[in-house]
């Protein structure tokens, strides 16, 4: 049975704004990324899953419980980390998390112990006894995560967990999220508008656009290999392209990279030898993969048109998008 099951879920606010429009999808346990338009769609969906907002029509079940009738029961097993600020500045982390643990149904002693443990797991040490008003954004985000974890939920809903964090804090939070999904063993849904993060952490993706399902699939499906090898050299790309073409490969230059179609094992050694003979500085050899953002593109990224052409003609690829930086650069 799916962890979360949505059938034709629709939510309209006042007849004017349609946040969700006939959303139908099954979500299995794992670390699931939820991406899409800001504001209405994702947050509304999370609130409906928590039983906090009534759907206009359609059905939703979480852990096999209907959200309309069993909201209170669902919330016993779900942890929620809201996007916005939600912590009182004059309480300490220990105070607020243990208080919320009690409200989640934990007996007093267990609440205290779990609070201490969970604060350790999220990385708050002596600062946990100080008032939250003095915390940095990173520390506040950790407290928010801690209160979502303290009652050991089966499902964790994280709304933009890296909001307001600098790159280092972002990395730490993502690592924490990864750990909750793998080490701690809970199902996690991460709502985010930063595709790089989703690619880094999630195993499954649900993309919503305009309140409808755009796509729902394992992450691997979105970042498959494209059958193209990208070769980057610090100088001499034109010479390399010419040489590889002469060797009989289908080649296109795209920005810094020379793209080679892979039809069988041939290209690797040809590329290597061409680079070696020309004495070029080789920076990168990499299979081009699709990226998550391709989902949202109107125009597909650079591809080699006749990629599997058996002859040695250079496939007419799209024009080079030259970045106007230093003149005279041989790219």
């Amino acid at each position: 049975m799916a962890l979360i099951s949505l059938r034709n879920l629709t939510k309209r606010y006042g007849g004017a704004i349609t946040a969700l429009d006939g959303l139908t999808v099954d979500i299995d346990p794992g670390i699931v990324g939820l991406v899409g338009s800001n504001g209405a769609g994702k947050s509304t969906l999370l609130k409906i899953l928590l039983g906090l907002v009534e759907p206009t029509s359609g059905d939703a079940t979480v852990l096999d419980l209907d959200v309309r009738t069993r909201g209170t029961d669902i919330r016993q097993f779900v942890g929620y980390m809201p996007e916005h600020d939600c912590l009182p500045p004059d309480a300490s982390a220990t105070d607020i998390v243990s208080h919320l643990a009690l409200i989640s149904g934990l007996p007093r002693t267990a609440a205290r112990e779990r609070t201490a443990e969970v604060l350790r797991h999220v990385g708050l040490y002596e600062e946990r006894y100080r008032a939250i008003g003095g915390y940095s954004t990173g520390m506040k985000q950790r407290v928010k995560l801690a209160q979502a974890l303290v009652h050991d939920p089966r499902l964790l809903l994280l709304d933009e967990p890296t909001n307001g964090l600098d790159p280092a804090g972002r990395d730490e939070m993502l690592e924490l999220v990864r750990r909750t999904g793998t080490e701690f063993g809970m199902a996690v849904i991460v709502a985010s508008h930063l595709l790089g993060e989703i690619e880094a952490v999630c195993t499954y993706l649900v993309a919503i656009e305009g309140g409808r399902l755009l796509r729902s699939a394992p992450l691997g499906d979105f970042i498959e290999q494209t059958g193209t090898l990208a070769v980057e050299v610090d100088e001499g790309s034109t010479a390399l392209a010419e040489r590889l073409t002469a060797d009989g490969l289908a080649v296109v230059v795209d920005g810094r990279a020379v793209l080679v179609a892979i039809s069988d094992g041939r290209p690797y050694d040809l590329v290597r030898d061409a680079v070696a003979e020309l004495g070029l500085p080789l920076v990168r050899i990499e299979q081009r993969r699709h990226r998550l953002e391709d989902l949202f593109r109107d125009v597909p990224p650079t591809e080699i048109a006749a990629a599997r052409a058996p002859t040695g003609e250079v496939a007419p690829g799209p024009p080079v998008s030259a970045a106007p930086t230093a003149p005279g650069d041989d790219r």
Partner: peptide, 8 residues
């Protein structure tokens, strides 16, 4: 040796 991937 064949090179399949090189990346900084």
């Amino acid at each position: 040796v064949s090179l399949f991937e090189v990346a900084p």
